[in-house]
Amino acid sequence: MNIIFSLDQIKEAATQILAQNPKKIILFNGEMGVGKTTLIKQLCKTLGVQDATSSPTFSLVNEYYTSDNQIVYHFDFYRLNKETEALDMGVDDYLYSGNWCFIEWSEKIENLIPGEHSVVTIQLLADGKRELNLV
């Protein structure tokens, strides 16, 4: 799936992503500031998370519950120095839990990512819109 959207169309973009029935582990790729966290916040909202969501840059993972008690994990591995740090925090338990796992900066743990996952790549276009590719 490939779409182009502006930030005021992010709700529709999130709905389109979920309509594609992606794997529950989704890697989010893109430059710093392209909108990965903003998109993940909207995906959480679209899934039914009612609590406030934020970037887990310092905590590495945030856990949210949807209105129907699904668990959503949001990871941000930007500050990770080596994969063993992720193992020390129990990343395997999260990744093999069967719950939604939205992962920013997944290249920091590339050897730990299960084979069954989807990838969202976001690119900022010259006009300020975003191009999103889901595979």
Rank of each mutant, 00 (worst) to 15 (best):
M1E: 05
F5A: 06
L7H: 12
L7F: 15
K11W: 00
A13K: 00
A13Q: 03
T15V: 13
T15W: 04
Q16Y: 13
I17R: 06
N21D: 12
P22E: 11
K24C: 09
I26T: 00
I26A: 08
L27T: 07
N29Y: 13
N29Q: 15
E31S: 15
E31Y: 04
M32A: 12
V34A: 12
K36A: 11
K36V: 06
K36S: 08
T38R: 11
T38L: 12
T38W: 06
K41P: 04
Q42H: 10
L43Q: 07
C44R: 01
K45G: 01
T46E: 14
L47F: 02
V49F: 01
Q50V: 10
D51A: 14
T53W: 04
S54M: 09
S55G: 09
S55A: 09
T57F: 02
F58S: 12
F58A: 07
S59N: 15
N62T: 07
N62R: 11
Y65H: 15
T66I: 02
T66S: 03
S67C: 03
N69L: 07
I71W: 00
V72K: 09
K82H: 13
E83N: 11
E83R: 10
E83D: 06
E85N: 10
A86D: 07
L87F: 06
M89W: 01
M89F: 13
G90I: 02
G90L: 04
V91N: 05
Y94N: 03
Y94S: 01
L95N: 03
L95F: 13
S97C: 01
S97T: 02
N99H: 14
W100T: 05
I103A: 07
K108R: 15
E110A: 13
I113A: 08
P114D: 11
E116G: 02
E116H: 14
V119Q: 14
V119T: 15
V120M: 09
V120H: 05
Q123K: 15
L125E: 14
D127V: 03
E131W: 06
E131R: 12
N133E: 13
L134Q: 04
